[in-house]
Write a protein that binds this DNA or RNA. Structure first.
Length: 134
RNA sequence: CAGGGGGGCUGGAUGGCCGCGGCCGUCAGGUCGAGGAAAGUCCGGACUCCAAGAAGCAACGGUGCCGGGUAACGCCCGGGCGGGGAAACCCGACGGAAAGCGCCACAGAAAUGAAACCGCCCCGGCGUGCCGGGGUAAGGAUGAAACGGUGGGGUAAGAGCCCACCGCGGGGCUGGCAACAGUCCCGGCACGGCAAGCCCCACCGGGAGCAAUGCCAAAUAGGGACCCCGUGGCGCGCGAGCGCCGGGACGCUUCAGCCCAGGGGUCCGGGUUGGCAGCUAAAGCGUGCUCGGUAACGAGCCGCUUAGAGGAAUGGUCAUCCACGGGGGUAACCCCUGGACAGAAUCCGGCUUACAGGCCCGCCUGCGCA
């Protein structure tokens, strides 16, 4: 991946150094799914620390999965957008550079859970998944 | 006012804060950014590539009353016919059954070149209410359907046996572009239904699809194996070449063109799966005007520019309002909760299906009022 297109955000204010890049490769999704995971009421977080040679160790990469199980196209889109929004807000502060994260939507719950709760869920899940590293 | 029926529109609004994609721009910023169905992918096209052009035939598929509209259609408009409804109006695979084949279950005597179960009538017999022979399709019974229907004459009882009307068939005339309708004459009736069974007739149709396709860059390769048909003949010419025959790839045939030493098929191996184009100003849109047309629609003029992503943006969140539904509180009112169906992927024209609530315009029937 050489192009630097970041559909989530270009660098937010200098305070958070880690850039966000969206996952596109199937293999990256599969790798994240095989690594550690943390469930929350409204989504599932999968996370993986990349090996050094994989990609730029300063960036955070994130992917979103909403399968047919989530619902029709409208429901999938909404779930994906809300996940994208919490990732945009939380990952620069709570994510680790050099890691890949995948957020998996759930039927109804992803769309209906209160937004602030959704943000807290992600922050909490990130702590849990990092701690499990030990 | 109530009930019914047709057509059209709409598909929450405003504002903070934080974001995304395209375009423009001097960095600031500006500007545009989902639907009526974007859906199902069911028809019709445009556009690409594949094949080698045309005509005919065959096969396969589709369409199916008539006329018109359209780029085209299985769509739309108008008309006809049939059916439903009191009406407005709605519904209809609506060509051909005397070209042929096939089928018509169950029931019923009989389901198509007819057929006698009961009954009716006549004759004969005797043991006087039964048997035998014959006539009869009017009645009963069966069925979705019984070789026309109703009435009268006629008869042993009956029967298109005869008559009138209706139906049916044939022919003529009138109206209509036509489907068809009306009317007159002829025929005593011969011809049951099913073509969402085969089929016949008419018309239409080559295949695959934007992951089509073209260009650029990088990298690797610049391949291998097997099979099939060929690399031709004759003549003229010093020769280039020309002529004839032969051969070459779509189902067949014919004609034209091209090729003549390569063409075709199967399998294996290697590489790329980056960028740009295609891509959105078009069969475009309009409560606009004029003209033609019953209309669909067409012509001219005048406006308008209305997503263009590409592992795929068009959002997240919070207020306030606004309809409407539900629940609660005694009420004016307040509180809580819910906001239809659904997300562009090359683009158009249709069809079909989904859809909370709201709005508008004609029409029909009934009641009331004037």
């Amino acid at each position: 991946m050489t192009h630097t297109d970041t559909s989530v955000s270009s660098t937010p204010p200098a305070s958070s150094p880690a850039a966000l890049v969206v996952l596109t490769k199937r293999t990256d999704f599969l790798a994240a799914a095989r690594a550690r995971r943390e469930a929350t009421p409204a989504f599932l977080l999968q996370a993986r620390k990349r090996r050094a040679e994989d990609a730029d160790p300063d960036i955070i990469r994130v992917g979103f999965t909403c399968s047919k199980k989530v619902g029709n196209a409208v429901a999938r889109n909404r779930a994906k957008r809300r996940l994208r929004e919490i990732a945009r807000q939380e990952l620069p502060n709570h994510g680790y550079p050099g890691w890949d994260y995948v957020l998996v939507g759930r039927k109804d719950a992803t769309a209906s859970r209160e937004f602030e709760a959704l943000r807290r869920d992600l922050a909490k899940a990130l702590r849990a998944v990092h701690k499990a590293r030990k």
